[in-house]
Design a protein around this nucleic acid. Structure first.
Lengths: 207, 207
DNA sequence: GTCTATAGGCGGATAGAC
DNA sequence: GTCTATCCGCCTATAGAC
């Protein structure tokens, strides 16, 4: 922000951010080592402090970016003029894809949000999510009144969808252990869920 | 194990274990401070090393106990002579109750299992879970052949149930933020799921 | 902008008195 | 068994040469 006058966008900065995301998501704020981030970014440890003042500041930047990414899928719920069913399908699909990009990230966010309650509110006001929530809630009520779906608690519906999309991916090690799956068949299992989860939700909503 | 000759079961040891579970689950192996565990257990830091040789050993003990607790609910799936539907209901109920006891624990287990792949296999062979899996899988097939439920992939069924039970609780901070709920109404939301999730699963299995 | 060297502090582990 | 004092290594952060 301060010195964005440089012509070439320093991709060192980008490499650091990517590396930090990987290390933080796996080891948490305290567990992450600046040296490991530097190694991963193929850069000197001192450069971390050159680009980002300190560990805490780097951490908060990553946290903020990743929460925004996770919440970005919510827009599939409110935007466009697609039918209710199509919005659900689209949301499930993008949600699963986003979490697949970076499976450890929701774990990281949930853990850090637990350690530091109020971190979410601090970084993002309640207002942006409130707008989407209201929109989705209204949509569910309208569909129910039109007789297209049965009457349901919209918050439970939301929780169901999120659970079915996110949990299997973050719980990969446990699920693979219990179901005795190798990496490939686990990937197939998740891929199949893009349709399966949407079907399950929509079937449940039939009047 | 070595010195279990002492008459009075040292409840200091129990306090330490409880404290360690709390701190480790929230901050992870590297993030946890021995001092914090000692404070929480109202005990001197040196005593931690008296009862448990070092941090790593204490950590592994806690990890092992907690995974066993989480997996213990699986027995509701295979045991007893109850009907299929009742087993599902009973499993959902106990699973939610267990996770509620210690909401951060599955997060902790999933994160540590990610950092250290093979930790699950190392601590618990595949065999015990394999037995339960086979039993459950056979049960699902038998019910389908009897025409009581439709034909489904048992592994997706298992993943669905786990997701709907576990995720909402571990994601409490994110869900409360998005749905703007206070502690009490969040608790109500989870409590209501004991029935709601079982209904959803059973409804989906109707032929 | 990049790197080396080092300061400075924190935290796990132990010695040893009681 | 319990506690204080202390060691020592690791890790963040910075100083300063280039």
């Amino acid at each position: 922000m301060v010195d964005n006058i440089d012509i070439q966008p320093t991709d060192a900065k980008e490499r650091i951010k990517a590396a930090a995301a990987r290390i933080f998501s796996l080891r948490g704020l305290e567990g992450a080592r600046m040296q490991d981030i530097a190694d991963e970014a193929q850069i000197n440890k001192a450069m971390l402090h050159y680009y980002f003042r300190n560990k805490q500041q780097l951490f908060e930047l990553i946290f903020e970016e990743k929460v925004k990414r996770i919440f970005s899928a919510l827009e599939a719920l409110s935007g466009s003029t697609a039918s209710f069913e199509d919005r659900i399908r689209s949301f499930v699909d993008t949600q699963i894809s986003i979490v697949l990009e970076f499976p450890a990230m929701p774990l990281f966010v949930m853990l850090e949000a637990r350690k530091n309650p109020g971190l979410l509110e601090e970084k993002f006001g309640k207002l942006p999510v409130a707008a989407i929530r209201t929109k989705f809630s209204n949509m569910v009520r309208a569909e129910a009144e039109a007789g297209n779906i049965k009457v349901v608690a919209f918050d439970q519906l939301f929780v169901n969808i999120m659970s079915l999309c996110v949990f299997p991916i973050i719980a990969e090690p446990m699920i693979r252990h219990v179901l005795d799956k190798d990496e490939a068949s686990f990937r197939d299992l998740i891929e199949a869920r893009k349709k399966l989860v949407a079907d399950l939700i929509i079937h449940d909503l039939k009047p």
